[in-house]
Amino acid sequence: MSPDGQVGGGRAVASNNLYTAILALAVGAVAATAFFVVFMCHHQYGVYLKIP
């Protein structure tokens, strides 16, 4: 796996694993935040994304 990445056979291949990990962390943070928000809504109001 080279740092510049390569595209071969129509399958996406990460050109740089470091930045892929950073993006994964960002996505995980967003997902955790969304899960936390949904949990809090359900815990406090009993609904997810609706005005009770």
Binding site: D4, G5, N16, I22, A26, A29, V30, T33, F36, M40
Partner: peptide, 29 residues
């Protein structure tokens, strides 16, 4: 991967952390 893409990835990540922190703080409090 171009340098701009890297910079954008970093900015996106930092901003995601900041916004997630703000959201978690707001929702938690």
């Amino acid at each position: 991967m171009s340098t701009l893409t890297k910079i954008l990835i970093l900015l996106l990540t930092v901003s995601s952390f900041i916004l997630c922190g703000i959201v978690v703080t707001y929702v938690g409090t």
